[in-house]
Design a protein around this nucleic acid. Structure first.
Length: 584
RNA sequence: CGGGGCGUAGCGCAGUCUGGUCAGCGCGCCUGCUUCGGGAGCAGGAGGUCGGAGGUUCAAGUCCUCUCGCCCCGACCA
């Protein structure tokens, strides 16, 4: 499957490191460096070394198989893209500084593609006219560029990285949904075949656009995203989008507003302590400046129940603004004389007031008085809050929040986003005027979807999940080699010959095998095999006197003795067994 | 971009505060011999314009100024 069938460690380019490199902190980054999978060229830019590249190719091939199985057709698109394409879709400005831009010698402007919606839409628009070819599922596996604000965790968030992208073109929404479901299914199979424990979550679609989207998240503490999920009913969502079940509206007698002196009490924590009440009896205020296109901006005061935080993504989507920044002190003072710490919804000047639904269900709550060192007690949102406020879901759910579907307490965990699928609808086909003719001769916009997988990131995610203190533990399906043959003492002629014989027999059987023929002490060879994560190790050593060699499983440490003429069968069987297990 | 930290041999570090045997240690690398079941021992050896540029000084890894790069924490994404 992967080229290069004869490989001995004495010739293999794998600069392994004994000590942890200073630049790496996460497990996957450390082991990728230490096992000689990658080397950094510059911040967020990596060379894939032979062992690392083998793993990448294996992951790519799994992806290819699953894409092809759903009718996907692979093509290859340029990384260098004329700026006009991006101006046409409107993303030249919307995409922001993350888009790598450059000029050629004639001062024509280009972008290095961070994604390929523009190119593919143009391609299909210019080369297909008919509904007969639909659905069209086109994909590519290639390098993409994003000028990340902060590259980190090695290959996990890089500026140049390999991505698989499939774009679906359908005649209508129903077709798009079918394509989407097929991809959803393919993605589940891909990540399973990579040996990953993952969750599919509902997601915000961000800069790509569209309404419905799912992310494939690998559970790991080093993940950059937070997800909320319910173990009872299966609800799962990116925290950016997650919501929860609210407590029923309170049914208390409404009391009269009362001003209370709260000297220098500025945080919810202090306020709850000072008044000896629960945080959920208070209302938290956060002030932002919302920036829309160009000069357009305003000040927004957002309110949630005291025990929640604001979900800035939800707020941003609600407002429809480009950026949401924390307000400066002057901005806060311009809307409330009390300054930060005493902000309440009543009596604010020139601010858009957004109140979370949770607050509207409360009675007799405590809010800031918009007056230094004072809060208001017994405020009743339904009655007392301003008429022109917006009520919406802008809260961030937390560990233990109630599942919106079944009410069970949810978990909040970190995850690595390895795949993301989107229903795009006609966003790009309309912007770029990509149409086809249906059977009635009517012009229609393509209804599109797009589906991405970060390839190196998937590799890193596997390491995050499958490792021990000795190194990587590759699943058989994506291991750089299935098995490594180690002779303990190379200078022992009998050991050397036996190892070589087993090695060439394994090659003949089509097994991906490595032989460690170096004149190193056994510990060195064992440790290199371990850190590299080869699933099986055949050790030719002290038992050879009895005509036996060992087969050792990297994952469990289990060792079995086989006679020299049984070992090749045993290896073949072990490989097949593990691959079948993962694929089943 | 804001906050924190770091650039001295391939990797990990000491030395910088308090200028003057400070060009050092461990690992790795090369040669030879002896070893060989979880990172072997002995002997010999190669390897650094101390990130870069200015400056202060009799003298600068060491002090000053500027610059470049890298890592970590926050806003973006596969």
């Amino acid at each position: 499957m992967i080229g290069g069938i004869d490989m001995r460690v004495s010739r293999l380019f794998f600069p392994s490191l004994r000590e942890n490199p200073k630049e790496a902190e996460t497990v996957s980054h450390v082991f990728m460096l230490r096992a000689g999978l990658v080397r950094k060229l510059a911040s967020g830019i990596y060379t894939l070394l032979p062992i690392g590249y083998r793993v990448v190719k294996k992951i790519e091939n799994i992806i290819r198989e699953e894409m092809d199985a759903k009718g996907g057709q692979e093509l290859f698109m340029p990384a260098l893209q004329p700026a006009e394409l991006w101006l046409e879709s409107g993303r030249w400005y919307d995409y922001g500084p993350e888009l790598m831009r450059l000029e050629d010698r004639k001062e024509r402007t280009f972008a290095l593609g961070p994604t390929h919606e523009e190119v593919i839409t143009t391609l299909v628009r210019d080369n297909n006219r008919s509904y007969r070819k639909l659905p069209l599922l086109l994909y590519q596996i290639q390098v993409k560029f994003r000028d990340e604000i902060r590259p980190r965790f090695g290959v996990m968030r890089a500026r140049e990285f390999i991505m698989k992208d499939l774009y679906s073109f359908d005649r209508d929404e129903e077709g798009m949904n079918r394509s989407y479901d097929a991809m959803y299914d393919a993605y589940c199979r891909i990540f399973k075949r990579c040996g990953l424990d993952y969750r599919v979550v509902e997601a915000d679609s961000g800069a790509i656009g569209g309404d419905v989207s799912h992310e494939f998240m690998v559970l790991a503490d080093t993940g950059e995203a937070e997800i909320a999920f319910c173990d009872s009913c299966g609800y799962a969502s990116n925290l950016e989008k997650a919501t929860d079940q609210l407590d029923p509206p309170e049914d208390a007698q409404e009391m009269d507003i009362q001003e209370v002196y709260t000297p220098n009490i500025k945080t919810i924590e202090e306020l709850a302590n000072f008044l000896a009440i629960d945080k959920s009896r208070t209302v938290k205020a956060v002030v932002y400046e919302a920036i829309y296109s160009g000069e357009k901006w305003n000040i927004v005061a957002a309110f949630v129940r005291g025990d929640y935080d604001i979900n800035e993504i939800k707020l941003k989507n609600l407002l429809g603004c480009l950026y949401l920044n924390p307000a400066t002190e002057e901005e806060v003072l311009s809307i409330t004389p009390g300054g930060g710490g005493f902000i309440g919804p009543i009596g604010l000047k020139d601010a858009v007031v957004v109140v979370d639904e949770s607050v509207m269900r409360m009675k007799n709550v405590v809010v800031g008085a918009n007056k230094e060192n004072y809060h208001l007690k017994n405020v009743n949102p339904q009655k007392d809050f301003p008429d022109d406020m917006k009520v919406a879901d802008i809260r961030k759910v937390h560990d233990g929040s109630k599942c919106p579907k079944c009410g069970f307490p949810m978990k909040v965990r970190r995850g690595i986003e390895v795949g993301h699928i989107f229903k795009l609808g006609t966003k790009y086909s309309e912007a770029m005027n990509a149409t086809f003719l249906d059977e009635n001769g009517e012009k229609k916009y393509y209804v599109m979807g797009c589906y991405g997988i970060g390839v190196e990131r998937t590799m890193a995610a596997v390491i995050e999940q499958l490792h021990d203190d000795k190194g990587i533990i590759w699943p058989m399906t994506i291991a750089p080699y299935h098995v490594i043959v180690v002779s303990v003492v190379v200078k022992d002629e009998q050991q050397r010959e036996t190892a070589e014989r087993i090695y060439s027999e394994l090659i003949n059987r089509g097994v991906e095998v490595l032989i460690d023929d170096r004149d190193e002490s056994p510990g060195v060879k064992f440790n290199d095999a371990d850190i590299m994560g080869i699933p099986l190790r055949v050790t030719v050593g002290k038992y050879l006197k009895e005509g036996k060699v060992e087969l050792r499983w990297r994952r469990s440490g289990e060792v079995k003795l086989y006679s020299v003429n049984e070992i090749v069968d045993a290896v073949e069987l072990a490989i097949k067994k593990e691959i079948d297990e993962i694929n089943s």
